[in-house]
Structures are given as C-alpha cells and as structure tokens.
Design a protein around this nucleic acid. Structure first.
Lengths: 197, 197
DNA sequence: GACAGTTTAGGACGAATGTCCTAATTCCTA
DNA sequence: TAGGAATTAGGACATTCGTCCTAAACTGTC
C-alpha cells in the first residue's frame, strides 16, 4: 500500500500507455510488460480492464485538481493564472505533438465508443472549465465567464489537434502567445493586426 | 468495376466504420458483416487492412476536393464560401456529437500510433487549409491568409471536440454563428459584447 | 518455526484478430 | 456453348485479446 506499490506502478504505466496508444489499443500484456510483472499477477490488482481505466481517470482528475489548486495559490492576477493553463500546451508540447491532448483524446475515444466511463473522462474538461470560469469571474467577467472558459478550452483543443496532425510546433507556440494576449487584452490579436473587410 | 461493385460497397462501409469506431477498432469481420459478404471474399479485394485504410483516405480526399470545388463554384462572396465550410459543423452535427470530426479523429489516431498513413490522413487538413487560404486571399487578406485559415481550422476542431465530449449541441451551434460573424466582421464577437480588462 | 494472508508467476480458456488457402460458383468472351 | 478469368464462400492458421485458475513464494504474527 506504499506509494511505490505494484498497484501504483500499474496505474502509472497504464496512465502513460492509455495516453500514448489510446485505451482500446492498450492491452493487459502491454501494461504488464511495462511494469515487468506477469499477466497473472495483474488480475490480483484489477479484475477487469475497465477497472484500470476508471482508476486512471480518477487519478487524472485528482492530479488535475491539485494542479489547478497550485495555480490558484500562486497569488498572481487572474489573467496570469489563465496563462498558466494556456502554457501547458508549450510545457507538454513534445508529447502533445506526438499524442495529442491527453484530455481530448481520451474523452473523444470513449465518447465515440459509447463507453460507460466517457462521462467521467469528460469530467476532466469540466474541471478545467469550472476553474477557468472562476478565473474569468475574478477578472470581472461574471456574466459571460463560462462562455469565455468554453471558448478558451475549444481554442486550445483545436490548436493541439492541428499542431499534432500537421506536425507544426511553431503554430502551437504562436497560438499560445495569441491566447495569452487575448486573455490580457480581451481582443483577438488577428494576424498582421488587420481587420477582415 | 461499376459504381455499385462489391469493392465500392466495401469502401463505403469501411469509411463509415472507420469514422464511427476508429481504424484500429474496426475489424475485417465488422466490415464484411456490414457488406454482407464472407471474410474470405474480402481478401480478394484488399490484401491487407492498411490497403483498405489507404483507399478510404484517398476516397475522402477526392470527396473533399469535389465538395470544396462545389463551394467555390457557387459564385457567392468569399466570406459566404468560408461560411459553407463553417456550417458543415451544423449540417453534420448529429454524427459529430457522437463520433467527433472525421478529419481530426482519424488524423489524431494515426499520428498517435505512428502509422505509415498518418501523413495522408493529415493531408485532408491541408486540403481545407489551402482552400480556406485561397478564400481569405480573395477576401483581401493575402498577407495573412494562411494564418487565418489555420485559426479557423483550429477553432472548428476545438468546437467539435468539446461539443462531443461535453454533449453540448447548443455550444456547437452558438460557436458556428460566432465563426460566421468573425468571418464577416473580422472581429471576434466576444460573448456579451464586452472586452476583457 | 508454524501458520494465515497477501502477492506473484505461469499458464489455460474461448473468442476475436489479420492473414491466407482452396474449392466452388458466376461471369465474360471466343 | 465451351473455356478461362474473376468473384465468392468457408474455413485454417498463428497470434493476441480479456479473463480466470492454481500453485508457489513471500510477508508478518504468534
């Protein structure tokens, strides 16, 4: 039951593999090989594959809550805190370029397959949504805070998807800057500073 | 070799199933059952699973080219043509809510798995990108046309992902309206018409 | 040192997978 | 209409999948 128990190591490897390969494409054998235990041992810790998935999702929810709490504690301005969120795209750009956004890909896969746990996976989005919503409220946008939160979520999702598919890391970095600018100024920094006619 | 040949029917069913379940999660047996032929017959038309995938991708590329050509021929203004693109989100909203964007999900899956055909799948994005680029050029934004195209692509991708994961069809419809507004006015219609401070 | 409970390894299981073979049937052409 | 090519059905194949069982090894307690 210690932090480095076999169970904990299984969850860590499963978490990584589910991100890198997707849930359906991650097998018991893959995870067991990653943890370096026998497949039989596996069943002692998790009775079904879905049970691992649920555990991984709950773990991600917990990790995300802690991350958001940390950002909230930093004492910076609301705009700066929102930029913390935006900049995870840059921080994790190597993995995002390879595997996409961990939140979006899992929620997408489970929703598409009509999996029982798709709701819990999507709850990760809700976590970010509500946190962003609070930040926009503190920024003086109480009336439309949730809409702004959804807008920023969608924006960052799209950037992750497109940068990964088109292998365009410069695009990812450029868009992160534009998002931060948008948060600070409230205006979209249309490229080249022109208006569409 | 006619239009309704077995081969053509296989491609159609494979196209649909690959969209609905993803490539790895679509089996020979699934497709064969959909076409109502034996699995053995299958091998006469396609030697490997990857061969079907390639055929489906090429078919999607062709279909998309025709679609874009049609939009280009309608003789409307460039802004109206761009809105044609944006509104496919609404037109296909039922399937998008269930299975996400067909372009983004396939490109994402293949990129993540490091599949040989990921580049061709991403070429679908390039098709839209170049088409949008041309429209923005005709709209008098030659210098930053490509950046605007990427921006709109990312925006629509994010909206599809988020609407599907959070089962929020109203969000999808609202964002489509905002995108069309953005194309016409060149300004982002920030919710509630306020500016961030 | 004996014992109970936990953890582990190894493998069995039926089902499903992608691939491939063979033998029928259908179709077109000479 | 006869013969050859194209198409089809059915199943064999090795492998992998999630699941589950059993027996050995380990752990801590009296």
């Amino acid at each position: 039951m210690t932090g480095n128990s076999t169970r904990e190591r299984i969850i860590e490897v499963a978490d990584r593999l589910i991100y890198e390969r997707g849930y359906e494409h991650t097998s018991f054998a893959d995870i067991a090989a990653g943890v370096k235990i026998s497949r039989g041992n596996f069943y002692h810790h998790f009775k079904t594959k879905d049970e691992i998935l649920d555990t991984v999702i709950e773990r991600r929810l917990m990790t995300t809550r802690h991350l958001l709490d940390e950002w909230e504690m930093t004492g910076e301005t609301p705009a700066a805190r929102i930029c913390c969120f935006v900049r995870i795209l840059v921080t994790n750009r190597t993995k995002i370029m390879q595997f996409g956004c961990p939140v979006g890909t899992l929620a997408g896969e489970l929703t598409r397959l009509g999996h029982r746990s798709s709701t819990r996976a999507s709850a990760l989005f809700s976590l970010f949504r509500e946190w962003l919503c609070r930040q926009f409220e503190q920024l003086g946008r109480a009336e439309d805070a949730d809409e702004l939160a959804m807008e920023l979520l969608a924006w960052s999702q799209g950037v992750a998807t497109l940068a990964s598919a088109l292998r365009d890391e410069a695009f990812l970095e450029r868009e992160v800057e534009r998002m931060c600018e948008w948060v600070k100024t409230g205006k979209e920094n249309v490229p080249c500073g022109k208006e569409l006619d």
